[in-house]
Design a protein around this nucleic acid. Sequence first.
DNA 1: CGCCGCGTTGATGATCCTCAACCGTTGTGG
DNA 2: CCACAACGGTTGAGGATCATCAACGCGGCG
Lengths: 262, 262
Amino acid sequence: MSAPKILDLGSLKQACKSCSLHDLCLPLGVGDEELQMLERIINRRRPLQRKDHLYRPGDRLHSIYAVRSGTVKTYTLTDDGQEQITGFHLPGELLGLDAISDGVHPCAARALETTSICEIPFDRLEELSVRIPGLQHQLFRIMSREIQTDEQFMMLLGKKASDARLAAFLLSLSTRLGMRGFSRTEFNLTMSRNDIANYLGLAVETVSRLFTRFQNAGLIEVHRKLITIYNLDGLQVVAGAQPVEEPRCCKGQCEGDQPEGN
Amino acid sequence: MSAPKILDLGSLKQACKSCSLHDLCLPLGVGDEELQMLERIINRRRPLQRKDHLYRPGDRLHSIYAVRSGTVKTYTLTDDGQEQITGFHLPGELLGLDAISDGVHPCAARALETTSICEIPFDRLEELSVRIPGLQHQLFRIMSREIQTDEQFMMLLGKKASDARLAAFLLSLSTRLGMRGFSRTEFNLTMSRNDIANYLGLAVETVSRLFTRFQNAGLIEVHRKLITIYNLDGLQVVAGAQPVEEPRCCKGQCEGDQPEGN
DNA sequence: CGCCGCGTTGATGATCCTCAACCGTTGTGG
DNA sequence: CCACAACGGTTGAGGATCATCAACGCGGCG
């Protein structure tokens, strides 16, 4: 790679403590001096540009990664070469945990926008977590959390209708962004409609229609990539609903029955 | 519980080494004397009867569990009280890893048949894995594996049609049973059709129809709970197929167009 | 300026869910 | 021992949701 000296080393050594993902990344539950040990094994990488790969399926696991800023999507390729997105990763979230079992990345990871990343060599992380029980515990917790959210997502795909999926997706973004200080009600969709549809197991057209339906129902407003949420509770209702149950917010309301039309 | 002395303590102390799940459970990658340390913290529980709960959502995490024999299903309750099955756990597989992050079980676990279980107190397991790096590594691997299979399952629910889901489900059972010495081609479905449908995000009727379709196509034979797989490769093809693509094995073949009828 | 990618909208159709009836098995009580 | 009910599973008919195909609008970029 032999990157030109784009980053000055001073900023590279900036402490994890001051990192915006301070409370979501690993350090939680780790003491001060231990935090320093952790910092010493963490490398800052040159920022990824949009569409750059962080790793590809089949790459050997060297490190796990934490998103500092930007967005990364992870995806697998199906038997016939189609892409299936397995997750979008926002600042403060870890990537690559699924590679530990085989020592090889089963997914690809790709930046959706300019993205900066912390790299944590896994072998050194393992050594360290033997010496710092709090760190080990934290790693268990993080992996457990991922299993848990995956299970929730299985429920989404298995039981919920299209509108509930999209609503839940927006709420998930809202919550995760809100947790680290961004606005919960106004943010950019860094991924394409195609990516959203792929992730939620829907067709692009369906996602598009749902956005307009949500907008007509007054739940949100969409301007290209910019989402403004007007009614978080309303979205919750849509997200919670089971398929074909009680009438959903935007079933009777915006199915096209409104006299005032478009 | 003060269980009556149904089990003699001798058999309780039977070593993990001789356990049928020897290579799938924790011990892999752990030395002999370390295996003994592990055995000392593991408790054998009285067998669960069908429909007994191992834990319920909201229960505090005391232990994680390994299935020794039998089957356990884990499920969550949706907002409106419906059950969503998150997994079926066969001998040699671990349960409860999703509870580590919050210290509380987000799922319920329930026996589908008479089932014997090993109980591993989690706090002691954590202590031990600080002292036995190989154990820590193994735990990371097991959790990583679960994340990985969850991701695969997301793809199943998001991208695959009903027949591919069921085929993949049967293949998963076949592989997992085969890995520990059971027949890959003939086994009992310990779960009800309802459970299968729930798990795969389908209606019971659909599952039922698919079984007969698979059977008419000569892929399998079904007699109530007993499944016999005649054509593993054929199932692979069905499982790999994307929805609405090239004609699937049992689309033209058994859609009812066969002159010879049933 | 024109092309291209992305997103939106409309029409059509297939998959799969729902509702309903039926059948075989299991278990219970007379 | 049989009758009956309860349950799980199967099969059929109809319909809703959502995918597909197609066309169009819009913004960005060469």
